[in-house]
Design a protein around this nucleic acid. Structure first.
Length: 889
RNA sequence: GGGCCUGUAGCUCAGUUGGUAGAGCACCGCGCUUACACCGCGGACGUCGUCGGUUCGAGUCCGGCCGGGCCCACCA
């Protein structure tokens, strides 16, 4: 209790009449941090619960998808904290190799310099500088959102500690021969000058040309026609392949044919890969520029000739095409071959899938390259098994097939990147061809004290794929490879919350490395997947569409709570959500409603002091709301636990708005006005309801709930309040059905009277004289006062003359409308209702006269239909009588 | 090419083991009823894509078709 917590000091009357999110949210976050609420306590003796944040890229700022991701994690972790767990939500950021390097290079370009002008060391220093700036922005946004992360444990994938983890695991994998270096066809971006993972390649249909190309003598018997979309690669052909069983080419297998334009003699080989049905049944083989061809080349021992520079310029072919860009060469080669009559004049457009760099959209070039790989076989198998045998749960379960589809058929992972920003591959090459992989504390024999390598040694130039370090995140952030208390305590983490879009390349890799590094212990027990945030039409957000929502803008306009509540309300497990500004406004409105309800309670002396009054002293209305509160508490608890955020927040929304505000508060006004013991009981129940509701809502909307809760209870903060699991003093679940049905009957009657009034043109606030009879037969004998208050009926004094009569079930309400009754309106209303009732009666009768139904349907269902018939018949009778009683108009 | 998901009120979406269709927003009346016009009261709105099957009964299960979307993929 210090100056940092002004909210605590305010008397109840100080709650401003108007809810202003900025005023509520502004000071709260820092006070939470100052009080250390978010700091995990390994020595607390409490049961641990841990989440590591999916580290946002240091590039740019948080987008709405991050806001969703963080909201979900914050809901989970805040609830656990309230449940008394030692809750750790570990924050941090990812260095995002290529993305970050691109951003910084773009900055440099504005000043007309390239990274090569600076040199590697200076450039990397520049990136660090930039990271400090950009990273700060993200942290500010997280604070704004209310993320209850443990700032004392913030990490960055390029931190010294995490870099040690990277080097340690690299060395271990290397020693276990799970990392190897090999020439492979990789996706190469000629513009970014880097290898791209399969995931960074977008395939979409482009129009090209499937050229038919004649090899061998155009008229000779060694004539072979092949088809290709990349004719320029023929300069690097080293074979022609046909299917072994293809009679058309049997005579050619084993022979050599001259490669046009180049003059090289290349063999015809037989390979199963070739589909004799496709095209001409013959394939040109360019091992250095096509993955299939590479494999064919490997099988037949043919050379791989690289004909392109990293920039995509033809080189080393000894032809006039050297020096041409690949697309330029495509045309030139085609023309040259056409001149020789090997290619037809006619162009046949051909639409096919072409890979593009996901970052710059350049057409990727399959290219032979010396790269580092992780041999994923055993690692992926373990990752699959962990889910198969139930050690790791994927939520929702429908995502499991995708998981298995991926881990059960994973290619080896190319981990080297031709970048400067990232973890440098810890491998050194010696003058005599030596290759040495170094662990964190190792150095080359003969190194100088300052680490300068011996003469002739140099380190591999490449850095590791960003995902390599992210894959270690669940334990590297806890201090691994050191033997820390945090690793011991918080690993495996309890739940991983992330979007299904990175299930494969992040989650799968964490699973592989986690199981590998931590002796088979999984990195998390549960993977909770959420979807993508889309625009109001369900379209993907993109800068080009101009439909991107900036979470900060919405927080400015509606508050962080409203943004969070909006995202939570749309968060159905694993599925995308469409959001619009109306939703945010609706969420803000809900916070306002909550605020106003709390104001009402405070102005009326609601309290949480002392025990809840015994059931014997509670009114039916109290019992009803407490029963409902107990139900909603159980629902919310279970719903949050099962990651059903949409369902749960929706249920709380309706409980607060439709039940507490619309009915309970209105009904409570009577005993509060009456004073005495009934008022005392109501004040206590009212306090209880709000207290519990605020605690249940706190994980989703932390700011406004804390502001209100401290006012209501005088407690320190709802952040550290106990999580409600049951409502003490309320009847046990399934609640108090008697009270619930009694109040339901009351609500039905009041609604009926209100509707009648509205049909008759009475203004909602206008009080009229009325006489109510028959309440006892509906079990509402004790509720006449409430009916009168909510339906605005005055007691009928002397001289009362009924001019309109409403029969609602057993109850009759006669109103003195002083001749204002609209007979036609009432007739229309009654006839409509009669139609509905008759239809219901007919449906029930039809079912009950169906012998098959009677014979086969369960008894309870039959009983339900019988009951329905009775009700419908009574309703028909009532409406017919009411219609008959209308004045002839 | 293979696989997955999806089609419910004008819009965006819920609908638990098959048993009389729901929400928010938008819409139509009326209203400053002493917490709240970021509100209240009342109202209207769907042959659950389509055809067929299973069943006493299907939005809910099965099959075909049509319409969207996604993932994976080396088809030259």
């Amino acid at each position: 209790m210090s100056e940092t917590t002004p909210a605590l000091q305010r008397p109840a009357t100080n709650l401003p009449p108007k809810y202003t999110p900025a005023e509520v949210e502004g000071p709260l976050y820092q006070s939470w941090v100052d009080r250390g609420y978010f700091t995990a306590r390994p020595d607390s003796g409490r049961e641990p619960f841990s989440i590591v944040i999916p580290p946002p890229n240091v590039t740019g700022s948080l987008h709405i998808g991050h806001a969703l991701d963080h909201t979900i994690q914050d809901i989970v972790i805040r609830r656990q904290r309230m449940m008394g767990r030692d809750a750790l939500w570990l924050p941090g950021m990812d260095h995002a190799g290529i993305a970050t390097q691109n951003v910084v290079e773009r900055e440099l370009r504005k000043d007309g310099i390239t990274r090569h002008d600076l040199g590697r060391e200076a450039f990397v220093a520049k990136v660090w500088e930039w990271k400090e700036h950009s990273g700060g922005q993200i942290l500010g946004q997280m604070r704004r959102l209310g993320d209850s992360v443990d700032w004392s444990r913030e990490r960055f994938t390029m931190d010294a500690g995490l870099s040690r983890a990277v080097q340690t695991i690299f060395k271990r994998l290397y020693d276990d021969q799970l990392i190897y270096r090999a020439e492979r066809i990789i996706n190469w971006c000629p513009r970014c000058h880097t290898a791209l993972s399969d995931i960074k390649v977008d395939h979409h249909d482009d129009e090209g040309e499937l050229v038919q190309l004649v090899y061998g003598e155009p008229d000779g018997e060694d004539r072979v026609v092949v088809a290709t979309t990349r004719i320029e690669t023929m300069l690097g052909d080293t074979a022609i392949a046909v299917h072994p069983g293809d009679e058309r080419y049997r005579h050619l297998v084993g022979r050599k044919i001259e490669l046009p334009l180049v003059g090289r003699m290349i063999p015809v080989v037989a390979d199963d890969h070739v589909d004799p049905e496709f095209g001409t049944g013959a394939v040109k083989v360019t091992p250095a520029h096509d993955p299939n061809d590479f494999e064919i080349g490997q099988r037949h021992g043919t050379a791989a000739i690289n004909i392109m520079t990293p920039e995509g310029i033809i080189t080393g072919t000894g032809t006039p095409f050297d020096g041409m860009d690949r697309f330029e060469a495509r045309e030139a080669v085609r023309e040259a071959l056409r001149a020789q009559g090997r290619v037809g004049d006619e162009r046949r457009p051909y639409v096919h899938a072409v890979g593009h760099c996901s970052r710059c959209d350049t057409v990727v070039e399959p290219r032979l390259s010396l790269q580092w790989f992780v041999s994923v076989g055993p690692l992926a198998k373990a990752a699959g098994d962990a889910v198969r045998d139930g050690r790791v749960r994927i939520h929702p379960k429908e995502m499991e097939p995708r998981w298995f589809g991926w881990v059960d058929d994973m290619h080896d992972w190319c981990i080297s990147r031709q970048l400067w920003w990232g973890h440098r591959i810890p491998v050194w090459y010696g003058p005599g061809g030596e290759v040495v992989c170094l662990g964190p504390d190792e150095s080359l024999p003969g190194s100088a004290a300052d680490g300068t390598p011996p003469e002739g040694w140099s380190q591999d130039l490449d850095v590791l794929d960003t995902w390599f370090s992210s894959a270690l995140w669940p334990f590297s952030t806890l201090g691994w490879p050191e033997d820390t208390a945090e690793v011991e305590r918080y690993y495996p983490t309890s739940v991983l919350v992330t979007g299904y879009d990175i299930l494969f390349f992040w989650v799968a890799r964490m699973m592989m490395f986690g199981l590998y590094a931590m002796d088979g212990v999984q990195p998390f027990d549960t993977v909770a997947l959420h979807g993508l945030v889309r625009d109001r039409f369900g379209k993907k957000m993109s800068k080009s569409r101009g439909n991107v929502v900036d979470p900060v803008e919405w927080m400015d306009r509606y508050g962080a709570d409203a943004l969070r509540f909006t995202l939570a309300r749309g968060a159905n497990p694993g599925s995308d959500q469409a959001i619009s500004e109306e939703w945010a406004a609706g969420s803000r409105n809900f916070c306002t409603k909550l605020w106003n309800a709390a104001r009402f309670a405070l102005l009326n002396g609601a309290t949480v002091e002392g025990d809840l009054p015994p059931v014997s002293e509670q009114s039916v209305v109290d019992r009803w709301i407490l029963s409902r509160l107990a139900t909603i508490t159980a629902q919310a608890d279970a719903g949050y636990a099962d990651f059903q955020f949409a369902k749960t927040t929706e249920a709380l929304y309706h409980f607060v708005w439709d039940e507490v505000c619309d009915w309970y508060l209105e009904l409570a006004k009577l005993p509060l006005a009456a004073g005495g013991r009934p008022a005392e009981v109501t004040r206590r129940v009212l306090g209880e309801v709000l207290d519990v509701v605020l605690r249940l809502l706190h994980p989703a909307i932390p700011f406004v709930t804390d502001a209100l809760w401290t006012q209501l209870t005088g407690g320190e903060s709802v952040v550290v309040a106990a999580w409600p699991t049951a409502v003490p003093g309320a009847a046990e679940a399934p609640g108090d059905p008697a009270a619930e049905s009694e109040v339901a009957a009351l609500q039905r009657l009041v609604t009926e009277v209100r509707r009648f009034r509205a049909e008759q043109g009475l203004k909602p606030g206008q009080t009229v004289a009325g006489r109510i009879t028959g309440l006892g037969r509906t079990g509402l004998a004790a509720h006449e006062g409430e009916v009168r208050a909510l339906a605005r009926l005055d007691d009928a004094g002397d001289g009362f003359a009924a001019s309109a009569t409403l029969r609602a079930g057993e109850v009759t309400v006669e109103l003195d409308l002083r001749g204002a009754i609209d007979v036609e309106a009432e007739r229309k209303r009654l006839e409509k209702d009669l139609g509905t009732a008759q239809k219901e009666r007919a449906q029930a009768q039809a079912k009950l006269s169906n012998e098959q139904f009677l014979a086969k349907a369960p008894d309870e269902v039959v009983a339900k239909i019988r009951e329905r018939l009775v009700v419908a018949e009574a309703e028909v009778a009532r409406l017919e009588s009411a219609l008959g009683g209308l004045p002839v108009g």
